[in-house]
Design a protein around this nucleic acid. Structure first.
Length: 535
RNA sequence: GCGCCCGUAGCUCAGUUGGAUAGAGCGUCUGACUACGGAUCAGAAGGUCGGGAGUUCGACUCUCUCCGGGCGCGCCA
């Protein structure tokens, strides 16, 4: 099926003849950056020559000779280049088979992998405190977490999207007190919340309501609404309050104590996280008898294992110091080191009117996620977040995003999608019908633009797997831009509906467009961006 | 001081888990419109991949070190 497998098999056989035994899967087959180096290339000769005590160039020539004596499927020539690369030139037939494969798989099956079949993963992200609206920075975690979840699903995992609501503790008291103060026409207490929304919400709050309960509900609903508008919906909302009431916190403390991981010092209760890689021990129960955030959070993570074999937390860079202690706690509870994973995302900096905006709920100078979505639209907001790796800090100039919104990459990709759909409409208007794929001779697809587009399409399955494994949805964004570029180029140079076009070519091109529709559809769905049929 | 992340074109960022001549968008300059929707396409200019050393047949990628930026560093969450 996959060309690369054919090439691997052929290389493996040639290697055996040369006296080298190598597992087929370890043979690297790559697509050369330079077209002059063929369609596919392998560096096995370079990789094995030293170990086999051979000259790489000679070994490569020997392998190439063996391959040329009995050319693998689709291969027209095998040649040696550079220090010992083996380059394969293929007839376009392999790309025509890609087209058939894409169309047969359809939007449902194309670029779907089974490597996660039978495994489950629980992804927790955003988890903002219910003390106010989400700020624009939260949007990055929403877009990233949701798209990562989609990638896992595409790869066969059973996925739970989860949000932890810290509806308890000191911050909630301050939040409630701030609401109550504004309600009474006073300033919030020291360390309280000074954002404008507090005043606004206080006015909405019934006089008889409990500020903490009412406020947390108000904030929660506000957050849910914005997340939904960004196409980020959650399967599970976990409440710290409910967790505390369930007795799970005491239970986990008992387990940790019985495991000998807990001790008393200076009136507080400590966990020996330093024995599991943390740089110091951590307090579970403060000297005033109150638990820290850490203890209920351990109980919470323990519960999450009922929803996934693999736990993933997505946290902002300011929480990276927290990773070791939770990882230590999970190991104390008997969970393997690799069953708990924390992805640290760097912060979003917002620039407005040429000045950096600090995203603080307490001081109230933030840009709300809602505001950003209203300004640029959900698709632009979401794709903007998914444009780059979360390992880098992201600077979003709000004015620039608004001003350049029509030049945003999202429109470039969506326009390609709209063009694809417009073809079907135009074809119908002109009475052109699409023949069954089996009756179409795809060998007519030989234009450089056609082959380039097919080449891009052939890459999506591996892009999806790689992006999942690297926890890097932005790789799908990059692919969708490349696919759109290939479509636009093809569209520009290859007419489809013009009257003087050969009917066989027309049919081939229409099927190529159909395959592109599937590829773009899959990638946009993974990104959580809409795939408009017209713009 | 210690830990995590980053440093690639004027700007914003990719770079296929070590490969051959480092890419895209924006911006600048120049072309393609009786157009299956030009929200497009083609070309040009623009690079000591922060500096240095090491490993390797081969380094933007791995290791060490220095410089610069962001974030965090015992009973906040």
């Amino acid at each position: 099926m996959d060309v690369r497998q054919h090439l691997r098999s052929a290389l493996a056989a040639a290697l055996v003849r040369a006296g080298i035994d190598m597992p087929r899967e370890q043979i690297s087959i790559e697509r050369p950056a330079n077209p002059e180096h063929g369609d596919w290339s392998s560096n096995v000769a370079l990789a094995t020559a030293k170990h086999a005590g051979r000259n790489p160039r000679e070994l490569a020539q020997e392998l190439a000779d063996a391959l040329n004596a009995d050319l693998p499927r689709h291969v027209t020539a095998t040649e040696v280049a550079g220090a010992g690369f083996i380059n394969f030139r293929l007839a376009p037939g392999w790309l025509h088979e890609v087209l058939v494969g894409v169309v047969e798989a359809g939007t449902e099956g194309f670029a779907r992998s089974a490597i996660g079949a039978g495994s489950s993963v629980d992804v927790e992200y955003v988890s903002a405190n219910p003390t106010g609206p989400l700020h624009a920075g939260h949007g990055r975690w929403a877009a990233y977490g949701d798209s990562l979840a989609r990638l896992f699903e595409r790869c066969g995992y059973e996925v739970t999207r989860e949000f932890y609501v810290n509806d308890r503790g000191g911050q909630m008291s301050l939040f409630g007190a701030s609401l109550a103060a504004r309600k009474a026409g006073q300033d919030p207490p020291e360390g309280g919340y000074f954002g404008e929304y507090i005043t606004e919400w206080a006015q909405q709050m019934p006089a008889t309501a409990d500020p903490v309960d009412w406020g947390s509900q108000r904030a929660h609903l506000d957050q849910v609404e914005v997340l939904a508008s960004m196409n980020a919906e959650f399967d599970h909302w976990a409440s710290e309050n409910l967790l505390a009431q369930s007795g799970a916190v005491e239970a986990v403390l008992t387990i940790l104590t019985e495991g000998g991981h807990v001790y008393e010092s200076e009136g507080a209760t400590w966990l020996r996280t330093s024995e599991f890689g943390d740089n110091q021990d951590r307090v579970l129960v403060k000297s005033d008898g109150q638990p820290t955030y850490f203890l209920p959070d351990i109980a919470y993570h323990q519960q999450k294992y009922s929803r996934g074999d693999l736990l993933i937390d997505i946290l902002g860079a300011d929480h990276h110091g927290y990773v070791k202690r939770m990882s230590a706690a999970m190991q104390m509870l008997g969970h393997s080191d690799d069953s708990y994973e924390v992805l640290i995302g760097q912060h979003v900096t917002l620039v407005r009117d040429g000045e950096e905006v600090r995203l603080s709920k307490r001081t109230g100078t933030m840009v709300e996620a809602r505001e950003l979505v209203e300004l640029v639209g959900a698709d632009v907001a979401r794709l903007t977040f998914l444009l780059q790796s979360i390992d880098t800090t992201q600077t979003i100039d709000v004015d620039l995003v608004v001003a350049e919104s029509s030049e945003n990459p999202v429109y470039y990709v969506q326009y390609a999608n709209a063009r694809v759909y417009s073809l079907a409409r135009r074809a119908e208007q002109r009475g052109v019908s699409l023949s069954p794929l089996a009756e179409v001779d795809l060998s007519v697809l030989a234009h450089q633009r056609e082959l380039a587009l097919l080449r891009v399409l052939s890459e999506l399955p591996e892009v999806v797997e790689r992006a999942m494994q690297a926890r890097a949805p932005h790789q799908v964004t990059t692919w969708s831009r490349e696919c759109a570029a290939a479509l636009h180029g093809f569209w520009h140079d290859c007419p489809i509906l013009s009257d003087d076009l050969d009917e066989q070519v027309r049919q081939g091109r229409m099927w190529l467009v159909e395959a592109t529709r599937i590829g773009l559809g899959v990638s946009l769905d993974l990104l959580g961006v809409s795939a408009p049929e017209s713009m």
